[in-house]
């Protein structure tokens, strides 16, 4: 199958699905297509949905699909589930909760496995979102794995990030505030018919009053991502400064609180759109986008060097006979890249 750009941009499902496959599998043709279609990105509303396992992310996603469809907007969903670290395989079941939309041509749902990537997404989710954006999907919902508290990646990708919690976490809200809570634009307290919902809301409110919630600065994020970025550490924020995270109670399985949730998402989108009028805000987002792609390109280059002519084996040999150390060897390998 050969991909035709015209068909892709006209939202042809089969072409789009194949492009996503090639992106996911790292097939070389995918990058050539991404280069061409990047000019068509930047139009979609990208909404991230993260939170603990069992919090109800997929059910909420299902409800949000319905609401955006009622407005006549096309919706694409990127649903990420973990790969088995042992077999490399995966069972991807997020879409079980969304199958009522399977026959709606205005909805496109795609499941991905993490394939060893940490952080709640896959290595290529950025490219996947670019592709869907260029294809003309108007709303893109990105549902993360939901296994840990370090799923901060989604907020670099999304304009609006939802963090889904459930009642009964009690003091744990305090305990995990340094984790996923910092990335929320909107907190969703789902399963709010359960005991403790109001308490969870109060805990979140207190946390926000203390100024401990919401998104950290871009500089902080780059730091956590392992990149030194002192020149980026000014006031760049991944979310508009004036936004105070909202807290919404929902019972997604009974369709309760979804209108309020959508209103909160819209309110954030409005603030976001206003922030986008400032060139510096756009520049910060583009910088993030580039740095991620650059980091992957660097790694790919370095990796291909190591795999070339037994370089990696030679390095290990020198560690084995103790004729050098891994720090020196790593520096030498990086220098060798520059001269190739």
């Amino acid at each position: 199958m050969k991909l035709e750009i015209d068909k892709l941009l006209a939202r042809d499902v089969r072409s789009g699905a194949r492009l996503l496959r090639w992106i996911d599998d790292g097939v070389a043709e995918a990058r050539a297509v991404l280069k061409v279609i990047w000019q068509h990105t930047g139009r979609a509303r990208v909404i991230g949905i993260t939170g603990n396992p069992g919090a109800g992310k997929s059910t909420l996603t299902d409800q949000l699909i319905g609401r955006f469809r009622e407005r006549g907007l096309s919706v694409a969903v990127v649903a990420v589930d973990p790969s088995s670290p042992f077999s490399g395989g995966a069972i991807l079941g997020d879409r079980i909760r969304m199958q009522e939309h399977a026959n709606d041509e205005g909805v496109f749902i795609r499941s991905f496995a993490t394939r060893g990537h940490l952080g709640g997404l896959t290595h290529t989710t950025t490219d996947v979102v670019h592709a869907l954006d260029a294809m003309g999907w108007e709303v893109i919902l990105v549902e993360t794995v939901g296994v840990g508290q370090d799923e901060v990646e989604v907020q670099r990708l999304a304009q609006t990030t939802l963090v889904v919690l459930t009642p009964g976490m009690g003091d744990e809200v305090q305990a995990i505030k340094a984790g996923i809570l910092e990335i929320a634009d909107v907190f969703v307290v789902n399963k709010a018919d359960r005991e403790g919902a109001d308490r969870t809301v109060r805990e979140l409110e207190q946390m926000l009053e203390m100024g401990k919630g919401g998104r950290p600065s871009l500089g902080e994020l780059m730091h956590h991502g392992g990149l030194k970025a002192s020149d980026l550490e000014q006031a760049d924020r991944a979310s508009p400064d004036e936004w105070v995270p909202e807290i919404v109670k929902t019972v997604a399985s009974r369709n309760e609180g979804i209108d309020e949730l959508v209103a909160a998402i819209d309110a954030h989108a409005e603030v976001y759109a206003k922030a986008c009028q400032a060139p510096e805000f756009i520049r910060a987002r583009l910088r993030q986008e580039f740095l991620e792609i650059y980091r992957r390109a660097l790694f790919a280059r370095g990796w291909s060097y190591l795999m070339h002519e037994d370089h990696l084996q030679q390095i290990v040999d020198r560690m084995l006979d103790r004729s050098s150390d891994p720090y020196t060897l790593a520096e030498q390998a990086v220098r060798a890249l520059g001269s190739r």
Binding site: V13, A17, R18, L92, R95, I96, Q99, F108, R110, S111
Partner: peptide
């Protein structure tokens, strides 16, 4: 990588899912 749809799918739903998931 296995995509599982759950119960009670129509052939049309399965076809659409297969194409979207490639």
């Amino acid at each position: 990588e296995v995509i599982y749809t759950g119960l009670h799918q129509t052939p049309e739903m399965i076809v659409n899912t297969a194409v979207q998931e490639d």
